[in-house]
């Protein structure tokens, strides 16, 4: 019988294979270095301690829930609107000649530059936040839906022409299914945008429960530990939601894998 390698080496090997070696190493170094340096950043042990303290009365959970609900409201509105506009733009040649340049321009619109304008128009409360989130979501969803419909293979459109499909059945039978993979990619990008806009709205608009509010409270009280906890939660929730959406999409539509790789860059 072969001797198994010692436990520590096996542990190190599996950590290194799963890519956890570096994060864990950094945390250990952070904790160790904390003794040597003047304290600006709290050390990881403190952070865990403070997190437990903050969540004792359900405060963090309440903030987390508020942010997620806010994001989902804006996301639902923005994704629906974006998908409808994108498909309509691509499906109608007339709309396309008129608004095609606007579509490619909209892609470059710096969404945060609208924050001062939106606050003047809609105030600082929940409505303005959800509008900002919906706007941010709608851009990638619209662009992807648009590109999906434009990318319908020509032979399919020719078949549709031959069958004299009316615009509605052409949309339902041909264009919508063909656009689906693109649309789902758009949903994924849209969710990332929505989460970013949620955080931004909580930072810049009126204070209300939310993870952004945790960060702002940390800034006001000069508490870097609260800010770091807020950032970690925001990052963690974002990654989890992205993974959940990706998993759901793969489950619903296995063929989506084909376009999965394309969206890495944007």
């Amino acid at each position: 019988m072969l001797a198994r390698p010692p436990l520590t080496r096996r542990l190190l090997h599996s950590l290194s294979n799963s890519g956890l070696l570096l994060p864990i190493g950094l945390i250990v170094i952070w904790q160790a270095a904390d003794r040597a340096t003047p304290r600006f950043l709290p050390n990881p042990a403190d952070l865990i301690h403070v997190t437990i303290g903050l969540s004792a009365h359900g405060l963090l959970a309440q903030d987390l829930l508020a942010s997620v609900v806010r994001m989902l409201c804006g996301f639902a509105a923005g994704a629906t609107g974006g998908a409808i506009i994108g498909i309509a733009l691509a499906a109608s040649p007339r709309l396309h000649t008129l608004l095609g340049p606007a579509v490619s321009a909209w892609r470059q619109l710096p969404i945060f530059s609208l924050v001062p304008l939106l606050t003047l128009w809609f105030g600082l409360d929940e409505k303005a936040k959800i509008i900002l989130i919906a706007l941010a979501t709608s851009i990638p969803v619209m662009l992807n839906a648009y590109e999906g419909v434009r990318a319908v293979p020509k032979k399919y459109t020719e078949v549709a022409d031959m069958l004299h499909l009316n615009p509605l059945s052409r949309l339902l039978l041909l264009q919508a299914p063909a656009a689906m993979p693109f649309l789902l990619t758009g949903l994924r990008q849209g969710m990332a945008f929505a989460w970013m806009a949620t955080v931004a709205s909580e930072l810049f608009l009126a204070a209300a429960p939310g993870l952004g509010a945790v960060i702002m409270a940390g800034q006001e009280r000069m508490r870097p530990d609260m800010i770091i906890i807020g950032i970690s939660l925001i990052g963690g929730v974002g990654i989890l939601m992205n993974a959940a959406l990706t998993g759901a999409i793969r489950w619903v539509l296995p063929a989506w894998r084909a376009t999965d790789q394309q969206d890495n860059l944007s």
Binding site: G19, F112, L203, G212, I215, G238, I239
Partner: peptide, 21 residues
């Protein structure tokens, strides 16, 4: 293989949240 997972996780953080820190 060592840096990839951390890189992928970090790049999903909305950077605007780093402002206050």
């Amino acid at each position: 293989r060592q840096i990839g997972p951390l890189f992928t996780a970090l790049r999903q953080i909305p950077f605007i949240a780093l402002g206050p820190l």
